[in-house]
Design a protein around this nucleic acid. Structure first.
Lengths: 186, 186
DNA sequence: CAGTAATTTGAGTGTTAACTCTAATTTGAA
DNA sequence: TTCAAATTAGAGTTAACACTCAAATTACTG
């Protein structure tokens, strides 16, 4: 049972955790950095969360959910829709996108809970892309569908990742280039 | 001036640092983990290196150099050659490849020395790819050349990165698919 | 076979991290 | 208004980290 004050503090702590991961990464995010951003003392943090990891996982779960704008999975997306949705997520949800990329790619190695969650998420994403390709190419074999989906999802992640290093990197143009065949102009 | 014993210890420490970064990442690599792998005590480590960071940078520099099998830059590589060289590096230099991907992508955020080094390396790599594209398409504009090179390098890194999460991921097939246009079979 | 310089030892230092605990304060239902 | 439960405060604990240092040992040179 929680009072209103506790729930508000909890929200502040999660927002602080999110911004801290986005700005300084998982490694740089400490109880101290979270508490300072949230204007809270360690005792309050541990009154609401069992561990730092619990707060981090809550934030990451939110980031994973935000990647997929159609959780109901209506099955009508085109490949271009999926790519555009990813571009939109990356460009419009700054902090969450940074958390997502940071963890998807690098942070999960230590933490088996996060790692498992991210791997399952990735599997689902590849399936989603494969189904979209199949809608456009009904005769393609399952193996080929999966292979193409994997290439595309990994390549998109590579592009998203580079933005973490270079703030001005134009994600949208590069992502669309993957689909338009601009890599192989022979 | 160093005795032979010291040089051998130095090699053991660098090899230990390399394998530690490859296995448990930069964050999991501690003086203790290095010294245990190298069969050395902390005092010996600090007799040969000024800091942990110095050993790490030495290892990373080796990984960066190993990516490029033609440092003389003869200017005769085709795009396919460059992609194949990267595939070879990733598949045949297991530990170094893991170090490279780990740092290129995630580890450099804390460390400005590493970050600067990696950014310069990336720039050089994009230029290299752009020149290879130009050799095949002499009429393409500089902007377009750079854009295509950036897309390709980032996408390749995304594919390489996914192998860190999934040991069985087939880097070679997916990397070649980027060039062959198999992403966009419309 | 000195003697000196390099190397190794391993206990020790200072710092910072996550997390705990008790007491004080605030909340809100009866 | 009362009072038990929820919340907050903040000093304190434990552990792990990078790194130091004086003494013991080993490697090479003349």
């Amino acid at each position: 049972m929680r009072y209103k004050a506790g729930l508000e503090t909890r929200d502040r702590i999660l927002e602080a955790t999110r911004s801290s991961i986005a700005e300084v990464g998982l490694e740089g995010t400490t109880i101290k950095s979270i508490c300072e951003r949230a204007n809270v003392l360690p005792g309050s943090f541990y009154n609401l969360f069992d561990s730092k990891e619990q707060a981090v996982i809550t934030v990451v779960r939110g980031a994973i959910d935000a990647v997929d704008p159609d959780p109901d999975h209506l099955g009508t997306d085109t490949l271009a829709d999926l790519v555009e949705a990813y571009i939109t997520f990356l460009t419009e949800q700054g902090d969450l996108a940074r958390v997502y990329i940071g963890i998807a790619v690098l942070g999960s190695s230590n933490n088996s809970e996060l790692r498992g969650r991210m791997l399952r998420h990735h599997e689902g994403r590849v399936t989603r892309f494969a189904e979209a390709i199949q809608r456009e190419h009904p005769d393609m074999s399952d193996g080929e569908l999966k292979r193409r989906a994997e290439t595309l999802v990994s390549a998109l992640n590579g592009i998203a990742l580079h933005r973490v290093l270079d703030k001005d990197f134009d994600i949208a143009t590069h992502s669309r280039a993957l689909l338009s065949g601009a890599l192989n102009p022979l």
